[in-house]
Design a protein around this nucleic acid. Sequence first.
DNA 1: CAGGTGACTCTTT
DNA 2: GAAAGAGCCACCT
Length: 121
Amino acid sequence: MPSRRNREKSDAEHVGELYQRMYAVARRIPRGKVVTYGQLAELAGMPGAARLAGAAMRASTPETGIPWQRVVAKRSRTTAKIGILDPIGAAVQRSLLEAEGVRFTRSAGISLAEHGWLPLD
DNA sequence: CAGGTGACTCTTT
DNA sequence: GAAAGAGCCACCT
């Protein structure tokens, strides 16, 4: 039997438990709201692991049903932006967000005051 | 075990 | 505000 040395990243059933915790939090983000990668990591109990949050969202697949588009990059104290580098993927994320009511500023920013999610909601 | 990587973020120029 | 540097953390080879 082949051992699972070659983990299929696309196999959402077998991603690490840490990623699963990220996903668990992400699933609670309401429509029209967003959280930053750092915030997601913190809420998942991994403060400082913002980059991992990014990796987790990237590793998510359509089958997992995770609202990955609601996780964005913090760019200042009051605004966030799409974190995806690939222009096409970034456009997709923006479309998904706009479809659920997220408003973008002239410079493609997202007001955290308006759309930032506080788990208290 | 070691070194490279990135959908991050904060501080300093 | 943009650009550059430096931490950051777990994953992948």
